[in-house]
Structures are given as structure tokens and as C-alpha cells.
């Protein structure tokens, strides 16, 4: 596996990273339980918008993909598809222990156990499920990472594309399903 080197960023990228860090639009993919703590995080009590973050409708517009919980194989295909539709630079945040190691569903026949085999995760938030405070905290962390140019999972994904693809194929068989369920 090819590791992304700590590269020197050009001035353009440094400035760009400053903007990206202060304006994170998220694609909140509601994959599992973790999604239930997103509304409190977004709404009046914790008010994510003060960090410059906000929900966006489609992956094209978003910067960060929130994987809020366990991923069934059926969902993982859609998540990968969504991730590939996003525009660089893009970041992935995994919520809860399920994305980390399968969590409570470690022996389930339908859910995967480790997200970073399939997508480059920049940041994990531990907990089942993470509390809004933890989410806010880790978003602060993400902002720091982007500012410093450390969140480069997207580069990693580009450079190790074969490795990721092979993993995806091993577990899923087929990422883009060709059966469209026409009736």
C-alpha cells in the first residue's frame, strides 16, 4: 500500500485549505443509528453552523461524507458511489464503533466490519453512538486537520485506488449494481 507523503503544499493549496477548513459542507449519509444524534448537533442546542458547517443536499456539493454508523453491504455500495461523486478534496468521517470495527454487529452477515478497507477515513468518532459534544469536538479536530493539510484521505484513495477497489470487490462482489429493479 502506497502511503501519501507529507507533501509541501503550494500557496494556493494553503489558502484553499484555509477556506475548506472554515466552510465544511457535509453530506450526511444516514447509514445507521449515529444519524439520530445529528439533528441535535445541527439544531439550536449545539448549532453546528457556528463552525461554518452545514448540511447539503447532494454529494456533488459536499466536502465531507459522514458515515453515521454501521454499513450493510447494500448501503456500502451506495456510500462508495456517493463518495466517488464528490468533488476533491473530500473527507470521510466515520461515526461510532460500527465503522471502526463492526461494533456490536461484528458477526452479522450483512454488515461490514471495517470501513477504512473500502474508503479512506480521515477521522473516526468513537462511541455508540457518539454524543453531540463528541461530534462537535471531532469536527473541531477535522477543521484543524484540514487547516494543516493532514486530511488527505482523498489523495490516498486516488493513489491506492486498486487496493481499495480490490477490497470492495472482495466484500461486495459488485459495487455498481447492474440490476435496477425494473418492474
Amino acid at each position: 500500500m502506497h502511503e501519501v507523503q507529507k507533501n509541501d503544499r503550494s500557496l494556493w493549496e494553503v489558502v484553499g485549505d484555509y477556506f475548506r477548513a472554515n466552510s465544511i459542507w457535509m453530506k450526511w449519509y444516514c447509514t445507521g443509528c449515529g444519524a439520530i444524534e445529528m439533528p441535535p448537533t445541527m439544531t439550536s442546542r449545539f448549532d453546528m453552523e457556528q463552525l461554518g458547517m452545514g448540511p447539503m443536499a447532494t454529494p456533488r456539493q459536499a466536502d465531507v461524507l459522514l458515515i453515521t454508523g454501521y454499513l450493510s453491504t447494500k448501503t456500502l455500495r451506495r456510500v462508495i458511489y456517493s463518495y466517488e461523486q464528490m468533488q476533491d478534496p473530500k473527507y470521510v468521517v466515520g461515526f461510532g464503533s460500527c465503522t471502526l470495527n463492526g461494533g456490536i454487529y461484528y458477526d452479522s452477515y450483512a454488515t461490514i466490519n471495517q470501513l477504512d478497507k473500502y474508503l479512506p477515513v480521515d477521522l473516526y468518532i468513537a462511541g455508540c453512538m457518539p454524543r453531540p459534544e463528541a461530534i462537535m469536538n471531532s469536527f473541531g479536530e477535522l477543521i484543524e486537520m484540514i487547516k494543516k493539510g493532514e486530511a488527505k484521505g482523498w489523495k490516498h484513495y486516488k493513489e491506492n485506488h486498486e487496493w481499495y477497489k480490490a477490497n470492495q470487490m472482495d466484500s461486495l462482489g459488485e459495487v455498481i449494481i447492474h440490476d435496477e429493479f425494473h418492474e
Binding site: N101, A110, T111, Q114, G173
Partner: peptide, 29 residues
């Protein structure tokens, strides 16, 4: 309905072992 591209025996039968299936398909950390 719920499963997509399922390639094993119906999973709720007693002789189906989800642990083995999971191990074979989804690598553990």
C-alpha cells in the same frame, strides 16, 4: 427484499453461521 446479491443459504436457517460468513467476506480489524 432486504438482501442484495445474496450468495449463500437463506440466513435465518439454523444451520447458517453468520460468523463464518462475516469472517470470509468482511475482514476484521
Amino acid at each position: 427484499l432486504f438482501l442484495e446479491r445474496w450468495d449463500d443459504m437463506p440466513p435465518l436457517r439454523k444451520d447458517f453461521d453468520p460468523q463464518a460468513y462475516s469472517d470470509s467476506k468482511f475482514p476484521r480489524r
